[in-house]
Design a protein around this nucleic acid. Structure first.
Length: 578
DNA sequence: CATAAAACTTAGGATCCTCGCA
DNA sequence: TGCGAGGATCCTAAGTTTTATG
C-alpha cells in the first residue's frame, strides 16, 4: 500500500511514467532546476530636503548612508521597544558605523536625536498610499503580479513550481522576539555579491543586476534551495526555497506524517521502555527517560543548547533548568504535582501544573539535589544523546516526531468524540475547531488576544441580542397568524401561518449560527489554531472527516491550505485512519 | 567522537485584502 | 458605497535535525 500511495501521489502531481526514476536515492533532490534568481529590496530613496533631522535642537543634513539607518529608527518610533536600553544601545552603535567622520564627531548621544519630522513624513506617506485612486492601486497590483510571474516560479524536474520567498529581506533594524540581546542591531542590505545561486548546470542561469556579480553559482542537487546568503545578525544562512504546494515540500510533509504513523505502531513499546528506565541505576538513563516522558506526555520541544548572549533565554525539554519547575508532593488534592513555568520558542510562556507518576517525581527530586536554580535539570542529557537513543528505538524517530504523533492522534480522537451525526454543518465545524483547539493547547500555540477582541465580542453579542428580539417578534407574529387562521380558516391565512413558521425557523437557525460563532471566538481568544493545522495535523484526518460527514473541504482549508495539502485531499478517503 | 555549519521546519505578528453590513 | 472586522498572506525569526569538519 505504500507503493500504491506513492503511485497515486505522483499521478496527482502529474508525473507520467516518471515516478520510478523520480525516487532519487542517496540524497539527490532534483535533476533539473532553473530559476530567475531573487528580487532585491528597492534601493534607498533619500528624503526630500524639507524633511529634517535635528541633533540637539539644530537641523542637520545626514549623509545618505546615515540617513537611511536613521529612517529605520524613525519608522519604529511608535513602538515601545525604541525606548528599551538594549535596543537603543545596539542601534546607536550600528548607526555610528554608517556615519561619516564628521557625523560621528557630532552625533554622540541618541537622546539628543530628533526623528519626529522623519516619522511624520512616513506616516503621511502611508496615509497617501491608502488614499490612492483605484487606478493607481490597480497599477501597483499589476506590477506585483508581473514580478510574481517572472520571479515567483521555477522549473524543477519538468514542473513549474511556486517559490516561497523570492524577495530578499530588506535592510532594517533587527527585532528579535522576547528579550533579545541583539534587538536594534542593523540588518544590512543584501547585494548581488552576497548571493549564492543554486541551479542545474544545464539550466539558463539567473542574471545578476547589470554591473554586478553573484558571489557564486553552484549546482548542488543534494539540497532544495535556489538562493542563499549569510545574514549579519546571527551569521546564519538564509535560503530561498519552494512553496509548500511544491512536490518537494509536499513529499517531505507526507513522509513526516508517515514517520509519525510508524511511531503509533510502536509507541506502547517505547512508553513501556522509558517507564522501565525510570528505575535504571544509571543517572543518564533516568534523565533520558524522564525527559522523554515529558516530551511524550506534554508535547515539549527537544530543547537544544543555545549560545548564551546570542539569543533570548528560552528553553525546551532537554535545556530545562531547575528554576523552571516546582515540585509539590501534594497540591489541590492531587499527589506529585510538577509545575512548569518557562519561556519556550518565540519566548512564549509555558505554564502547566501536572500530576506525574511517583517515580518521575522522585527522580526529579533527585535531579534537583544540590543544584542552583540556573543549573540544568537534565545535566547528563542533551538533544543529540536523546535523538541517538530514539533512533535506536525506531528508524527515523526524533524528539519532534512525538509532537506530530500526539497532535495528530489527539485530533483524530477528539473528532471521533465530539462529532455527532445529528448536528448541522456549523455545529460540526465548531466541533472540528474544538478538536483543533485541543491540539493547539497541547502544543501551547498561543497568540496575543487581538487588539479589537473585546469590541468585536461586544458587537457579536449585540447582534445576538438583536436576533433574539427579532425571533420573539417573529414568534409573536406566528402566534397571531395562527389565531387568525383558526378563526378565518381560509387558504390565505393558512399560507400566512406557513410563511411565519418558516421565518421563525430561519431566524432560529441564524441565531444558533451566531451563538456558535460567539462560543468559538471566545474559546479562541488566546489560542492560535493555524500552526497546528499547518504543521502538526495529518491533513488526511481532516479530509476523511470532511468526507465522512459531507462537509465541504473549503470549510476547513482555505485555498492556500488546499494547495499545500493537495496530496492528502487526493489520497485520503473517508475510512482513512492515522 | 564533539562541535560547527548547513539545511530545513515551525512560529507569531504585521500587513494586505475582501466581504458583509450600515 | 464606504468602512471595519477578520481572514489570508507575507515576513522572517527561532526552532530541530542533518551533515560536515577537525
Amino acid at each position: 500500500s505504500f507503493l500504491w500511495c506513492l503511485c497515486t501521489y505522483f499521478l496527482a502531481f502529474n508525473f507520467p511514467l516518471l515516478w520510478e526514476e523520480e525516487r532519487y536515492t542517496d540524497g539527490v533532490k532534483w535533476k533539473f532546476l532553473e530559476h530567475k534568481g531573487p528580487v532585491f529590496a528597492p534601493p534607498y530613496e533619500p528624503l526630500p530636503s524639507r524633511v529634517k533631522f535635528y541633533y540637539d535642537g539644530k537641523p542637520m543634513k545626514l549623509s545618505p548612508e546615515a540617513e537611511e539607518v536613521a529612517t529605520f529608527f524613525a519608522k519604529m518610533l511608535d513602538h515601545e521597544y525604541t525606548t528599551k536600553d538594549i535596543f537603543r544601545k545596539n542601534f546607536f552603535k550600528d548607526w555610528r558605523k554608517e556615519m561619516t567622520a564628521e557625523e560621528k564627531a557630532t552625533i554622540t548621544d541618541l537622546k539628543k536625536c530628533n526623528f519626529t519630522e522623519m516619522s511624520e513624513y512616513f506616516k503621511a506617506q502611508s496615509e497617501a498610499r491608502k488614499a490612492m485612486s483605484k487606478e493607481e492601486k490597480q497599477k501597483i497590483k499589476e506590477e506585483n503580479e508581473r514580478i510574481l510571474q517572472k520571479y515567483g516560479f521555477c522549473i524543477m524536474d519538468n514542473h513549474k513550481e511556486r517559490i516561497a520567498n523570492f524577495r530578499i529581506e530588506p535592510p532594517g533594524l533587527f527585532r528579535g522576539r522576547g528579550d533579545h540581546p541583539k534587538m536594534g542591531m542593523l540588518k544590512r542590505r543584501i547585494r548581488p555579491q552576497d548571493i549564492i545561486i543554486n541551479c542545474s548546470k544545464d539550466s539558463k542561469y539567473p542574471e545578476p543586476p547589470p554591473g554586478t556579480k553573484w558571489k557564486e553559482v553552484r549546482h548542488d542537487n543534494k539540497v532544495t534551495w535556489l538562493v542563499s546568503w549569510t545574514e549579519n545578525i546571527q551569521g546564519s544562512i538564509k535560503y530561498i526555497m519552494l512553496n509548500p504546494s511544491s512536490r518537494i515540500k509536499g513529499e517531505k510533509d507526507w513522509q513526516k506524517y508517515e514517520t509519525a504513523r510508524r511511531l503509533k505502531k510502536c509507541v506502547d513499546r517505547i512508553r513501556a521502555q522509558y517507564r522501565e528506565d525510570w528505575k535504571s541505576k544509571e543517572m543518564r538513563v533516568r534523565q533520558r527517560a524522564v525527559a522523554l516522558y515529558f516530551i511524550d506526555k506534554l508535547a515539549l520541544r527537544a530543547g537544544n543548547e543555545k549560545e548564551e548572549g546570542e539569543t533570548a533565554d528560552t528553553v525546551g525539554c532537554c535545556s530545562l533548568r531547575v528554576e523552571h519547575i516546582n515540585l509539590y508532593p501534594e497540591n489541590e488534592g492531587q499527589e506529585f504535582v510538577v509545575e512548569f513555568d518557562f519561556l519556550g520558542k518565540d519566548s512564549i510562556r509555558y505554564y502547566n501544573k501536572v500530576p506525574v507518576e511517583k517515580r518521575v517525581f522522585k527522580n526529579l527530586q533527585l535531579f534537583m539535589e544540590n543544584k542552583e536554580p540556573d543549573d540544568d535539570l537534565f545535566d547528563r542529557l542533551n538533544t543529540s544523546i536523546l535523538n541517538k537513543h530514539l533512533q535506536e528505538l525506531m528508524d527515523g524517530l526524533t524528539a519532534k516526531v512525538f509532537r506530530t504523533y500526539n497532535a495528530s492522534i489527539t485530533l483524530q480522537q477528539q473528532l471521533k468524540e465530539l462529532t455527532t451525526a445529528d448536528e448541522n454543518i456549523p455545529a460540526k465545524i465548531l466541533s472540528y475547531n474544538r478538536a483543533n483547539r485541543a491540539v493547539a493547547i497541547l502544543c501551547n500555540h498561543q497568540r496575543a488576544p487581538p487588539k479589537t477582541f473585546e469590541k468585536s465580542m461586544q458587537n457579536l453579542q449585540a447582534k445576538i441580542d438583536a436576533k433574539k428580539d427579532q425571533l420573539s417578534d417573529a414568534k409573536r407574529e406566528l402566534k397571531s397568524a395562527k389565531a387568525d387562521a383558526k378563526v378565518r380558516k381560509d387558504e390565505k391565512t393558512k399560507k400566512a401561518v406557513e410563511t411565519k413558521r418558516k421565518a421563525v425557523q430561519r431566524i432560529e437557525e441564524q441565531l444558533m449560527k451566531l451563538e456558535v460563532q460567539a462560543t468559538d471566538r471566545e474559546e479562541n481568544k488566546q489560542i492560535a489554531l493555524g500552526t497546528s493545522k499547518l504543521n502538526y495535523l495529518d491533513p488526511r484526518i481532516s479530509v476523511a472527516w470532511c468526507k465522512k460527514w459531507g462537509i465541504p473541504i473549503e470549510k476547513i482549508y482555505n485555498k492556500t491550505q488546499r494547495e499545500k495539502f493537495a496530496w492528502a485531499i487526493d489520497m485520503a478517503d473517508e475510512d482513512y485512519e492515522f
